[in-house]
Design a protein around this nucleic acid. Structure first.
Lengths: 338, 338
DNA sequence: TGGATATCTGCACGCGTGTGCACAAATGGG
DNA sequence: CCCATTTGTGCACACGCGTGCAGATATCCA
């Protein structure tokens, strides 16, 4: 509790002097698997705690060329599903003694590549991209420097990166069957102008399934992937005669906006007049006002997998791994007409 | 575009050799305000880009004893208001060339102090605590090492830390007047068991204002600060005879759960049978199903202020700064009975 | 052209660590 | 008691960078 100390960090040197040992002994005390006698270890530890010593991870990383930092590149952090991913990832990373550096970016490629450069500055071990698509050139740079790039739900198949994504296909197909079995006749897909690979795939597969069953589908893309866009889509669809009676919203957030507008602006009852299926299973989907039938992204399992990529020994590139979403039946779809 | 290079980072040394200059020249090229001729600067820059060189911020930080890293210690990251704070802070920090390291913690003091230790490891310039209260001893350690600690909405008045918080007093008082003017007779405060300084203050001031007006208030604290706790509170209050007709929920999230249960489980109409006032102004408060009257936390302004603390020259401790919340009138409170 | 001055460059050191190597000390076995 | 073996320690170097200092080169003025 030496109060009047210089206003700066304590180095191993100072601890060594105080403990009456060499600096190496201090270093070894704080290095796993190094050889130190119990006696000196105790001397060092007590001196360290008296002085308030903390190993400088910057210097440590300098030597190992590895900083234990993992960068998370993310946009739309306020969006429920993104927040959940960041939450899960940070927890999992901490559990394996890594620390997350989050970089908040607009989705445009320019700011993403600026972000990627930052991760190189700090010699991050890996970069996890949750949104926005990094240009291929930057990915190559990262790889050339021995850094790993993990792309979540943005399978652009950039070679060298590891892609992990939720399986949109089964979900989109199942969504169609749900609506079909509920007796819906006029189907709609509600999407956004974001045109993400994931979103496009959900649109495409749902439409294809409907086609195969001989049913037409109208696709509406209104603004960004937000609550407001869900509202806007509803206005476009129900403003004219004969709106849909079954809608697959590629995101819960869109679905919720869509439901709110359908109910409050057009007086529709859900699920009697209109069935809605979402995707993500955000917390709000389970709120009493919505009780949305949807497909849950296995956020925790995905985060687990990302973390496992960084376990020692696991340096191979698995290229691609998909996770099955879990269907969650609630009340926004009519029970099967029997 | 030298493809077949060793799988490691490029150092200034390599760039120097390639450019035919000394390593110092490379260093100076990437240091603001250093003196380099235009000719060598160009040679260096082109060599650097060919090799894919990136300044090692770890080494740079090692010299300056300052890493440009700011740690955000946060829990409940999935909560809308927290996500917004993290979003705003990361953006602001990036704008001033700092990078955010987020540490996800349970709110208990033990994990918070573990988090604080992490920030010391990485020589973070400052630590911003968004939730959970760090023990005073750790704060002292941080300060002794020249690190700054900023506490947001957790004014525990730990000496040495900078506290920034929203002004709960005016809001809580105004909340009471709103309900009073709406003609509510039986008032309730809906809170949580978290017992945060902020939350307690909102309860206290609201109750005091009601007392002063000669009205009784019942306080309900059910579980953590969540949607489910709002529901639980409603069940407790409306399960017995004569529930409240005006409620101040210390958080929008609680308010929304409360509203949902009141409407769907007890058939109450809002605002006709029950008026509700929230706090935070999260995005969901503006959703069509709720349209909650509430008080907006000036998240962006607060983040701005935090960032300004780190501007060069600003090293003084201002101790405490509060921000006025903005009232947002929507439809969960009856218009004044005239 | 010569000298004074401004501009640039390289050398060498230090930042706080981890670690190979040589050596000292302790331990064990006969 | 001596030697072989284990265990612990210190020295010195390296990691990649910024920067003071001295020297080299360029620029300017008379």
């Amino acid at each position: 509790m030496n109060e009047a100390r210089s206003r700066s960090f304590v180095s191993a040197q100072m601890v060594a002097e105080r403990a009456g040992v060499s600096r190496s002994a201090v270093s070894r005390t704080f290095t796993d698997g190094a050889s130190v006698s119990e006696a000196t270890r105790r001397k060092v530890l007590s001196a360290a705690s008296e002085l308030g010593y903390h190993v400088n991870h910057l210097a440590r990383g300098l030597i190992h060329d590895r900083s234990n930092i993992v960068c998370l590149v993310v946009s739309d952090l306020t969006t429920a599903i993104r927040a959940r991913m960041v939450d899960a990832l940070t927890r999992r990373l901490q559990a394996i003694d890594k620390v997350a550096m989050v970089i908040n970016t607009e989705s445009d490629t320019e700011s993403v590549s600026a972000a990627l450069r930052q991760t190189l500055h700090y010699r991050a071990e890996a970069t996890v991209v949750l949104s926005g698509t990094p240009p291929a050139s930057i990915i190559e740079t990262c790889m050339a420097n021995g850094q790993r790039v993990v792309l979540i739900n943005r399978d652009d198949h950039l070679s060298g990166s590891e892609n992990i994504a939720v399986d949109n296909q089964v979900a989109a197909r199942e969504a169609f069957f749900l609506l079909q079995r509920a007796g819906c006749r006029r189907l709609a897909v509600i999407s956004s102008e974001a045109r993400t690979a994931s979103l496009l795939e959900r649109e495409r597969v749902f439409t294809a399934a409907a086609d195969a069953a001989g049913m037409a589908v109208s696709v509406t893309r209104a603004g960004p992937t937000s609550y407001a866009s869900g509202i806007e889509a509803a206005r476009r669809l129900f403003g004219r005669s004969s709106g849909p009676d079954g809608a697959f919203c590629v995101t819960d957030l869109l679905a919720i906006g869509f439901m709110d507008a359908a109910r409050h602006e057009f007086g529709l009852r859900i699920p009697e007049d209109l069935c809605v299926v979402g995707f993500d299973d955000i917390e709000q989907a389970n709120w009493e006002s919505y009780r949305l039938t949807t497909f849950a992204q296995p956020v925790e399992r995905m985060a687990d997998h990302v973390a496992s990529l960084f376990e020692p020994g696991n340096s191979g590139v698995s290229e691609r791994r998909t996770f099955e979403p879990t269907p969650v039946w609630r009340r926004s779809v009519r029970p099967t007409a029997s």
